[in-house]
Write a protein that binds this DNA or RNA. Structure first.
Length: 444
RNA sequence: GGCAGCGUGGCCGAGUGGCUUAGGCAAGGGACUGCAAAUCCCUGUACGCGGGUUCGAUUCCCGCCGCUGCCUCCA
């Protein structure tokens, strides 16, 4: 049985969906004002892993992930670049999904946009005002967190403690520094929507409550995000639901951050905190493997070395795939490997161990030409979202002709000629390997 | 200042009160090969520092040092 760490309870707990066999997940998605960075990449791989594993375990998964397309940063960028903010959000969203496709991320079942839920958000805010848990100031509407039962659940702190940690804010109309904006009144030139409390735009924390409850209903199973969202974002989402008397997420799934040694990173890698740049420079699967080799709640460090390391490991997997592709159809996966994998994953998604079982299966397959182990390796790789390349890449005829020339030279024991052709092909970027079937060539 | 976490062999990164003490990459040796490549086999170097608990700690407790994240927009 799957066990997951629940941030609210602060412990690994058995996962039991409210409806047997079905899992509903809401995962905080990107604010579309720029290209995805490495943190987004890890974030999406974490979600993807959770979804794939739940699906493989037999659950019917409904996965909702939003697009935040109203935000101060979007407005700021639009102003700086003197173009409509919708241009930025549309373009960034396209770039986002293209990038995630490259990373092998499954698309969400639903992708609600904040701009598509403004009416519902206004209605929620109005209800909170009517209940007297929200109050208006000269620049917006705020939630009074002191009235929220259990505020601090996710921050794991008492109200006083949280308050003392809060930075001093310019806004003195707020009753507490912890109170947060549900609605921001529009300043001249800012995008705005009509509302009874004045034209403006919703605060960030409001969209996720409204959209998750609308699409998944009260008491949905899992709310996911980076641990930087734990507080205040998720705390504040929950606060709104609680303030309205509604049940919110049953389990909080938070993953760790990507850490980049600023100096080291910038020197060795250049501007690869941009995920798209990283995927241009390295195999996207290597990034995924790098993420999977650490536990989802641990921090990971991305560097030139760690990416090269991961690429070498991917090459090993691809070599395995070439060897066994097409030979495992209908073969039952080795049960022992699958069981080890499942045990690791059921224990709070211990992917480091899961990856180790994958490589163990690969090793056993290679060693004894063990088809059951090979089938297990393919299955595990699939659940982890690692697409192995077993298909022979297309090779130009002239290159194949040279390979045949080499076979002839080798048959004639003309080693000088054979070596010369190999050098020639290698210089052209091909990997040359001799097999029982003669010279094979593939892209390097 | 508050909260949370981390410090493992050349590197990345698991794990465990004692047992053959993951896995990947790199290194060295060997098998295979005309030579390679791929693959397989073998090998080395470990648990930040100081105490404590224990028959025994890398694993538990305390202190220290170092590092990180959150507390403000953030995946």
């Amino acid at each position: 049985m799957l066990h997951l760490f629940d941030t609210a309870r602060g412990a690994v707990v058995p996962f039991e969906p409210s409806t047997p066999g079905k899992v509903s997940i809401y995962a905080c998605g990107p604010t579309v004002y720029g290209p995805p960075h490495l943190g987004h990449g890890r974030n999406q791989v974490s979600y993807d892993l959770l979804r794939r594993y739940l699906a493989w375990s037999g659950f019917e998964v409904t996965f909702v992930s939003n697009i935040t397309d109203i935000d101060d940063k979007i407005i700021e960028r639009a102003r700086n670049e003197e173009r409509p903010w919708q241009d930025i959000t549309r373009r960034c969203e396209d770039v986002w999904f293209q990038g995630m496709d490259r990373l092998g991320i499954l698309r969400p079942d639903h992708t609600p946009h904040a701009t598509g839920y403004v009416d519902e958000m206004v209605a929620l805010i109005q209800r909170l005002v009517d209940r007297d848990v929200a109050y208006a100031t000269s620049d917006g509407v705020y939630l009074d967190v002191s009235q929220v039962e259990g505020y601090g659940l996710l921050a794991h702190g008492e109200l006083d403690q949280l308050r003392s940690g809060a930075r001093i804010e310019a806004n003195e109309e707020k009753r507490s520094p912890l109170d947060f904006a549900l609605w921001k009144l529009a300043k001249p030139g800012e995008p705005s929507w009509p509302a009874p409390f004045g034209d403006g735009r919703p605060g960030w924390h409001t969209e996720c409550v409204v959209m998750s409850l609308d699409l998944l209903g009260e008491g949905f199973d899992i709310h996911a995000g980076g641990n930087d969202l734990q507080f205040p974002h998720h705390e504040n989402e929950r606060a709104q639901a609680v303030a309205e008397g509604k049940r919110f997420a049953n389990l909080w799934f938070h993953h760790g951050m990507v850490e980049i040694d600023g100096e080291k990173m910038s020197k060795s890698l250049g501007n690869v905190s941009n995920l798209l740049d990283l995927m241009d420079a390295y195999d996207p699967r290597a990034f995924r493997l790098l993420v999977l080799r650490a536990h989802y709640r641990s921090p990971i460090d991305v560097s030139d070395d760690s990416m090269r390391d991961a690429e070498a490991a991917i090459a090993r997997l691809d070599g395995f795939a070439r060897r066994f592709a097409g030979r495992v159809d209908g073969v039952d996966a080795d049960p022992a490997s699958i069981e080890r994998f499942r045990t690791a994953m059921d224990d709070d998604l211990k992917t480091p161990t899961a990856v180790a079982t994958l490589f163990d299966a690969v090793n056993r397959a290679n060693k004894d030409d063990d088809l059951e182990a090979a089938a297990a390796a393919f299955e595990i790789a699939g659940v982890l979202g690692l697409e192995l390349r077993g298909e022979a890449a297309s090779v130009p005829d002239e290159v194949l002709a040279r390979a045949r020339d080499r076979d002839e030279a080798r048959a004639a024991k003309d080693w000088a000629a054979a070596d010369q052709i190999r050098d020639e092909l290698t210089a052209a970027g091909w990997v040359v390997e001799d097999t029982a079937d003669g010279t094979t060539v593939r892209p390097g």
